[in-house]
Design a binder for these strands. Sequence first.
DNA 1: TTTCGTGCAAAGTGTTTGCAGGCGA
DNA 2: TCGCCTGCAAACACTTTGCACGAAA
Lengths: 133, 133
Amino acid sequence: LNISGYKNTKQRNKIIQILQNAKTPVTAEEIYLQVKKEPTSIVLSTIYRNMETLLKKGIVTKTIYSDGKSRYELTQERHTHRVICLKCNKSIILEECPIEFIEKNLEEQDGFEILEHKIEIYGHCADCKTVKN
Amino acid sequence: LNISGYKNTKQRNKIIQILQNAKTPVTAEEIYLQVKKEPTSIVLSTIYRNMETLLKKGIVTKTIYSDGKSRYELTQERHTHRVICLKCNKSIILEECPIEFIEKNLEEQDGFEILEHKIEIYGHCADCKTVKN
DNA sequence: TTTCGTGCAAAGTGTTTGCAGGCGA
DNA sequence: TCGCCTGCAAACACTTTGCACGAAA
């Protein structure tokens, strides 16, 4: 999992382990709180720096949610899209990717070179739908 | 344009005017810089507060871009999707909206209530494609 | 040993808030 | 007049950076 010139530290491995267990993208702070209890605590700046490193290596993917916080997840084999609950931020993975239809036109007609795309659908998940406020 | 219990100030009108002339969503700071030169200067906090007010009224729409900054635009009649250049942040409006296909499944199978969705496609526009770095 | 990684503290950046005075209705 | 709106300054929240020490290769 961890090759290519970078070092293999406790902190880095712990972070990757947390990302592996996460069912949904997590914030730096969520990672921080999760290790805080354990003897192996990690400082926030270390988490951010590792995220940057892992981003460069393509191991993690970063998305800024509508609350303004960056969330990180392990990069998926096939790129995915998520449906995100506005209340609890839980997410569902979308199987379909409708972008392919659009890409061709965009590249041919507008000369736009597509590098990445994000689909974010917001709403209330089944759990939160019933909760008031 | 401006009814419903709120007051009609120079600052607010100026902001709306700037949004009307903008071809692309703008940041609070961009608005600030644009009025700074003129005799009618507006402070950043006023811009943010007005954005919040206009958001509540549904007059403007806010999107957080991948640089972490919020950008504002007048709410479009029909909801739109944009293709955003990673270098200059210029954007192209997408005519198609492929989400309808997905929505039905999501609501029926997962019980997810969809409230909004964003499609953001990032890449390099025709201008920036040729520029190095 | 050399280099990269970490902790700690401080600084940055974008955004929000408290307060007193001012303008619009 | 009354209440919302503004400017100014300070506070916030998330993220980044500088520096010296510590750990991995």
